[in-house]
């Protein structure tokens, strides 16, 4: 029998999203629950990601579990040429769950087919990183009280940014979202997502200018515009300072507006925003621990 895993955000139903939200809230209220006592969780980071690993390992520790694993493949048997297949086979005999990050796309799906224990995908190349989306959703429901009827502004790299794509997919399950996409010409939201929104009868608007249109926003989801994404460096120079959020731009925005960012940020949110009560990205990162506790508890049927 195959264990239940979390590989892509669409692996979960709306009911499961809402269950994760409830559990995360419960864990936030009571962070130290010994649900993982006697359990071993493997964190296999075939490529390093300190931020994600620490968040997961904090979640495991809060739940009273033990951790085995590695934080980058050069310090493991993988550097000796062991296949992913064999590593997963071996570790699934030792642990109760595997949390993995791997540079190849589809690696986590493949691991879930081999493994007898649940897998959480903590990032497979540029493909999926579903726990990020669940913590984004938890941050939204916590600050807005609902995931229905939200006006969501996504800003920056909407072409390659996997976090915005996953969030969009998840929000298809909720009532009446409105999407506003703000991106430079080179990095607009891919057509496949726009077609999907249209087929669900969901409204979306595209803009290339980052102006007072944000006054209608409930959530602004900022992403990084990376130089490497541009074929023409001149184009990058033209837009690099256009998609930066500054405190003065928030003057007439809604009271309930919150600003999210998957972090790390470079310069796309000016530091003068940090003290604004609408800035939520650091709390968002903290919410990640509770969302991950909820995912672990759900997949292991502990709650």
């Amino acid at each position: 029998m195959k264990a239940k895993s979390l590989i892509s955000i669409t692996d979960f139903s709306k009911e499961e999203y809402l269950k994760i939200m409830r559990l995360a809230e419960d864990f936030e209220a009571n962070p130290n629950q010994e649900l993982l006592q006697g359990k071993v969780i493997a964190t296999l980071f075939f490529e390093p990601s300190t931020r994600t690993r620490l968040s997961f390992e904090t979640a495991i520790n809060r739940l009273g579990g033990k951790i085995i694993g590695f934080s980058d493949s050069s310090s493991s048997s993988v550097s000796k040429g062991e296949t992913l297949h064999d590593t997963i086979k071996m570790v699934s005999n030792y642990a109760d769950m595997i949390i993995m990050r791997h540079p190849m796309e589809g690696s986590a799906r493949y691991a879930s087919e081999i493994s007898s224990i649940p897998i959480i995908n903590a990032g497979d190349g540029a493909n999926q990183h579903p726990s990020q989306t669940l913590l984004d959703m938890y941050s939204m429901i916590k600050t807005q009280g609902t995931l229905d009827n939200l006006n969501l502004f996504m800003v920056g790299d909407l072409k390659y940014g996997r976090t915005v794509h996953s969030l969009l997919m998840a929000m298809l399950q909720f009532e009446n979202p409105i999407f506003n996409f703000i991106a430079p010409q080179e990095l607009v939201m891919p057509n496949e997502y726009k077609i999907l929104l249209a087929s669900h009868g969901i409204k979306y608007f595209e803009h290339s200018e980052f102006t007072e249109i944000i006054n209608a926003a409930d959530i602004i989801y900022m992403t990084r515009v990376q130089k490497e994404r541009f074929i023409d460096p001149v184009e990058y120079e033209k837009v690099k300072n256009v998609y930066i959020l500054r405190n003065e731009m928030l003057k007439n925005t809604k009271e309930n507006l919150r600003i999210l960012h998957p972090l790390p940020r470079i310069n796309e949110i000016h530091t003068d925003v940090d003290d604004n009560p609408k800035a939520y990205y650091f709390t968002q990162a903290k919410n990640g621990v509770y969302a991950r506790m909820a995912i672990i508890a759900h997949l292991l049927n502990l709650k």
């Binding site: 296949t83 190849m104 690696s107």
Partner: peptide, 10 residues
């Protein structure tokens, strides 16, 4: 996709 796991393992 050259970065797909199916192109890296059997």
């Amino acid at each position: 996709n050259p970065k797909c796991i199916t192109n890296a393992e059997t």
